[in-house]
């Protein structure tokens, strides 16, 4: 049995997209998405909504869980690829795939980079990392639970390759925050 997607695709995808657009424009700020009635486990509401909003036949998707594959194929009609490096959207609900293994675009066409949709345990604003860069007036604070220990080293390597690089959408429950490749992250101190 395949669970439902958006109740009103045009309106619901617009609301989800504006949340993602605001989130990537203001890195590290947390935005709540309208709750999705039946996200397919292990996907939670925000991650499932982002897929319904952005994935289609033009975007190869890699997924680290098999359970939502039928749901994904039915609602998005997207090709599902076996290697994360071949995907436009890389979906991780468990361990984060290495950023260096994902598509990062080219110097001339950096927009051909993958976006990592990463489901994490929790997002908290006002504490944790200090984020600076485009979209941030002075600094944003963001605490993320459930990332690999070497995440900041991987992120520094990703950001150093600008304009090439991966953008990350961090999803927790019905909320999300974005880390575009332009953002600089410092450990709280």
């Amino acid at each position: 049995m395949i669970s439902a997607g958006f109740a009103d695709p045009a309106q619901d995808s617009q609301r989800s997209f504006r949340a993602v657009l605001e989130a990537i424009s203001r890195p590290g700020r947390i935005f709540a998405l309208p709750p999705l009635a039946e996200p397919p486990a292990p996907l939670r509401g925000a991650l499932a909504s982002v897929l319904l909003t952005l994935a289609d036949a033009d975007t190869p998707v890699w997924l680290d869980a098999a359970a939502p594959l039928d749901w994904l194929r039915f609602h998005c009609g997207c090709p599902v690829v076996a290697q994360p490096g071949a995907a436009r959207f890389v979906v991780a609900t468990g361990a984060m795939p290495a950023l260096a293994g994902l598509a990062r675009g080219t110097e001339e066409e950096p927009h051909l980079a993958a976006t990592l949709l990463l489901q994490v345990a929790s997002l908290r604003a006002g504490e944790g990392w200090r984020l600076t860069g485009p979209g941030i007036e002075r600094e944003h604070r963001l605490a993320v639970a459930g990332l690999p220990a070497d995440f900041l080293a991987q992120w520094a390597a990703n950001a150093a390759g600008f304009p090439r690089g991966v953008d990350i959408v961090l999803c927790a429950g019905d909320s999300l925050a974005c880390l575009p490749r332009t953002v600089r992250i410092e450990e709280a101190g």
Binding site: P9, A10, S13, Q14, F17, V20, L21, I24, S25, T53, L54, D56, D58, T59, P110, H111, A113, T115, P134, G135, P163, D167, P180, R181, T182
Partner: peptide, 21 residues
């Protein structure tokens, strides 16, 4: 149509991640 909007929305997200590109 929704397919066109999705394509433009994906381009917009890349554009914001690549200021000025």
């Amino acid at each position: 149509d929704e397919n066109t909007k999705r394509m433009i929305r994906r381009a917009l997200l890349q554009a914001v991640a690549l200021p000025g590109y």
